[in-house]
Design a protein around this nucleic acid. Structure first.
Lengths: 239, 239
DNA sequence: GCCTAGGTCCCGTCT
DNA sequence: AGACGGGGCCTAGGC
């Protein structure tokens, strides 16, 4: 009975027709993509407004509502996939899409719909390689990449300040906290490492006999300064 | 001569036809939105692959290429608006979109195009209120919100560790570094404030006579612990 | 060009 | 549910 539904496109639908089409798409857990002239109003954690213009509006089956403009990766406005979604054809012939949750609301008011496409997006099976976790694997397979003679003892070892990427011992048997980053890092990475080292020193009552090692392709100067000031080391490693 | 171009939609175009339509859209600085079945391959800072499925693919006039799936705000894959973009109809009747820059490449291979919309998105005039800058303005207008008797002296005052949000004096004349956040914060905000305070103490050679004040709606326990340990204060303020 | 920090960050993961 | 950290983070502003 349920055969693969087809993608349907509509050129210049009247707002009242578009309202029905979008509502049907939502009811059928389908996606609706609109191109049209609209204003956008957001209110929630912050608030915002987008002046009239032609935008690309997408309502996904998970409830996400996105408004894309002409540039950039990020939507001009968006709403997470929870809460209510309503489509209304107004008396003055506009199509109003409204997503509303406990804390946020997003209203897209289209005075013209140039195109409407209803379709069935698939859930995505996505592989990514080159993440921080991949770098950690490499370092565990060849611990000398951290430092000659390094021995890993655990990953994600808990400290009062949070879990450390790699916990181990150096060639002299000193405990090491290793923080791994996949790309060049700034001051935040150095202070993150420092927090873990300090927490572990306090936890183990071994005042300063714990080393901190930051593994990353490279560090900025301010990062290097902080490492130096706090007595931690930088070990360059490029994935 | 150049009248407002219209949005055009095409249902189930042949890949060869779609290739021409997308290429024309790119040449005319227009946007193209496709719905179709495709695989996605990315290589660059990391690498990734998306298994076959129906996706929403958008090429914006600034060169951005986005692939959206069924869920979430973030694209399954994307490419920034620089470098080359090519559309190819292959011998085996697929449409291949390829965005390539010095460091990154993204390939979308569609075996079927269900819908293609070409349109002219407008540049966006966007207002946002409730940002951190807005909170700073409020605090400058009514410095008692930071702390009774607080006197602001500068915003974005430079220190060796970077510019501080608000620099001023408390009721007793002590120098204060104020870090402002618009929402509940964790350990990172506390260490950021601490870096500024330490840098300024070193810079002004006034060993510990500089206070750190974190202004935010609320803080997590770990954040509170760090503030306490480093001797800084928390001043709750909700926008 | 790099660096720094904000973001309606989003998002997964774990407590 | 809150919290914590990663992200191909993206993006804006300085220098």
């Amino acid at each position: 009975m349920t055969e693969p539904t087809e993608t349907t496109t509509h050129a210049d639908p009247a707002p009242a027709d578009a309202a029905v089409l979008v509502r049907d798409a939502v009811d059928a857990d389908r996606a609706a993509a609109l191109v049209g002239s609209c204003t956008v109003d957001y209110d929630g954690r912050a608030s915002g407004h987008v002046d009239p213009g032609v935008r690309h509006v997408v309502r996904q089956p998970d409830g996400t509502l996105l408004v894309h403009g002409a540039t950039g990766h990020r939507p001009l406005a968006w709403h997470a996939g929870d809460g209510d979604f309503t489509t209304t054809a107004t008396a003055d012939d506009r199509l109003v899409l409204r997503a509303e949750s406990n804390t946020e609301e997003l209203t897209v008011a289209l005075d013209a719909v140039h195109a409407l496409t209803v379709y069935d997006p698939d859930d995505a099976d996505k592989d990514v390689q080159g993440t921080e976790a991949d770098v950690v694997s490499r370092l565990l397979n060849d611990p000398d990449l951290v430092e000659s003679g390094f021995t890993p003892l655990a990953t994600e070892r808990d400290t009062p300040a949070g879990p450390v990427d790699i916990y181990g011992r150096d060639a002299n048997g000193r405990i090491c906290v290793v923080e791994v980053k996949r790309s060049r890092v700034g001051p935040d990475a150095a202070t993150q490492l420092d927090r873990y080292v300090r927490a572990l020193r306090e936890d183990l009552h071994t005042d300063s006999d714990i080393r901190g090692i930051l593994v990353a392709p490279s560090v900025t100067q301010k990062c290097r300064d902080i490492l130096l000031e706090r007595g931690h080391d930088f070990s360059p490693f490029e994935a």
